[in-house]
């Protein structure tokens, strides 16, 4: 049962799109400050789950709750980092301008914007690229920029949809650590979608695995690995290896 420690919850959520069941019987709650990872095969409904919470889609039945409110529309408390960063940025605005969009949306006066943009860009390591257009930035930098913009909203819940799926391994690891640092600094609640089991284990306090057709919760596993996490130590931790083995079987089942 959700209580005051619940950041958001799915309560008996069913969703049909175009007459087809996409998600069925989704029930789970995520605590404030928790880092929850959703894994599942491609097309199983991970993005849709996230869009429900973002208020971009309404459930056919059941309810999605944010704190003690039912989600009926997007909320400023919830920021989204989309998978396709190149499409989610305004190509005609510089990095600064893209972060500014979120500030403009929440009504920050023009005179205060610069002072808020600079630390956000610094946080994601884009200070030297502040005046560049997205087309002049690498994929990793574009995704960092999208993260900076989502933080500008000052959200309490951060939704991330396979944000590093298209990035190379090194960039991916450094962004994973940046996201962990940012989430713990802000005590933000995170729902992080990925199809990469190891990424889910490395980042999460909990992993939620979904079945396909329709999307249902297959397994929920707590990840009691110590924090702060470390790319080498965490991934070699006996518990990490044990959980990987356990969830690997679940993943095989899911993909079957």
């Amino acid at each position: 049962m959700p209580d005051s420690k619940t950041a958001f919850s799915f309560e008996g959520v069913h969703l049909e799109l175009g007459g087809r069941p996409i998600l069925q019987d989704i029930n789970f709650a995520v605590k404030r400050g928790e880092f929850a990872c959703v894994i599942g095969a491609s097309g199983c409904g991970k993005t849709t789950l996230l869009r429900l919470l973002a208020g971009l889609v309404k459930p056919t039945s059941g309810s999605v709750r944010l704190g003690d409110q039912t989600v009926t529309a997007p909320s400023r408390e919830v920021a989204v980092v989309f998978q396709d960063y190149s499409r989610a940025l305004l190509p005609w605005r510089t990095a600064t301008g893209n972060v500014s969009l979120a500030l403009e949306a929440i009504g920050v006066p023009p005179a205060e914007r610069a002072d808020r943009i600079a630390p956000l860009l610094a946080k994601v390591g884009l200070t030297d690229h502040a005046e560049k257009y997205p087309s002049q930035l690498s994929g990793g930098m574009q995704q960092r920029l999208q993260i900076a913009r989502s933080l500008a909203q000052d959200p309490s819940v951060l939704l991330m949809d396979e944000p590093f799926g298209a990035l190379d391994a090194m960039t991916r690891q450094s962004l994973q650590d940046e996201v962990l640092r940012i989430a713990s600094e802000r005590h933000a609640t995170v729902l992080f979608v990925t199809h990469d089991l190891e990424e889910a284990l490395y980042l999460g306090d909990r992993v939620i695995a979904l079945y396909s057709n329709p999307g249902r919760v297959a397994r929920m596993v707590d990840i009691p690995l110590p924090r702060p996490r470390d790319q080498l130590a965490t991934r070699e931790h006996p518990e990490f290896l044990r959980l990987r083995r356990e969830l690997f079987t679940v993943m095989e089942e899911i993909h079957a």
Binding site: A54, V80, F82, L101, I106
Partner: peptide, 26 residues
């Protein structure tokens, strides 16, 4: 881009702001 429409929705951009900041520049 559909994604920019999503961004506008998530950010609560008004219709006028959508025209001015996303539609027209696009």
């Amino acid at each position: 881009e559909q994604r920019l429409r999503d961004v506008a929705q998530v950010l609560h951009l008004s219709k006028a702001a959508f025209i001015w900041k996303i539609g027209l520049p696009n």
